Simulated assay, not measured.
Amino acid sequence: MKTITAIIRCKPGSEDTMKTGLLDVAENVRKNEPQTIGFFISQDVSDPCVFTTYERFADESAMNTHNNSTTVAEFFKIAQPILDGDVTLVTCDEVSAK
């Protein structure tokens, strides 16, 4: 199992735009990516400009399919102008899951 954790900071005032963009990606994953095992979105309770995604993929091919999808490309077109700094991505091999 491959995983990606992304930490995304948006500019103040753009939280709703970021949330909507991420939810659109999640909806596409639900409908079109059976090999994406999980796509979780969180918003920081103390700083609503910070979002975290945790993504679980059956294998590297599924991860690449997701990352190269039109939906992810469209998300970054929306997100790029409202990002506050770089997106932090951590790609891992899952070791344990409950």
Rank of each mutant, 00 (worst) to 15 (best):
K77D: 15
V95N: 03
V90W: 01
A97V: 11
D86C: 04
D44S: 09
L89A: 06
V45D: 03
E94G: 12
L83V: 12
F39R: 04
Y54Q: 02
I4L: 03
D16G: 06
F76C: 03
A73R: 04
N28K: 02
D93K: 09
V25D: 04
D24L: 01
N67K: 12
D93W: 09
A6G: 09
K98H: 06
V95H: 03
D86P: 02
I8A: 03
I82T: 02
T88Y: 10
V95C: 02
A26Y: 10
A58E: 15
A97C: 06
F57H: 08
Q35V: 01
P34M: 10
G38D: 15
S46N: 15
F76Q: 05
E33H: 09
Q35H: 14
M18P: 01
A79G: 01
V72G: 04
A97M: 00
D59R: 05
V50K: 04
P81L: 13
S42L: 11
S69C: 06
T53P: 05
S42Q: 10
K11W: 10
P48V: 14
T88W: 08
F75S: 00
L89F: 15
S61A: 08
R56E: 13
G85E: 10
T3C: 13
S61Y: 03
N67G: 14
K11M: 04
N67M: 13
L23V: 15
R56Y: 08
A97H: 09
V50W: 00
P12E: 08
D24I: 09
A6N: 14
T71A: 12
N28M: 10
E55R: 07
M63D: 08
G21D: 05
A62K: 06
S42M: 13
T71P: 07
T3V: 00
F51Y: 14
F76P: 00
N28Y: 15
E74Q: 10
G13R: 06
T71G: 00
I41H: 05
V25C: 12
D86A: 15
A79W: 12
T70D: 10
N64E: 14
A6V: 04
F51V: 00
F40A: 05
I78P: 02
N68T: 06
T3P: 04
T70L: 07
I82A: 06
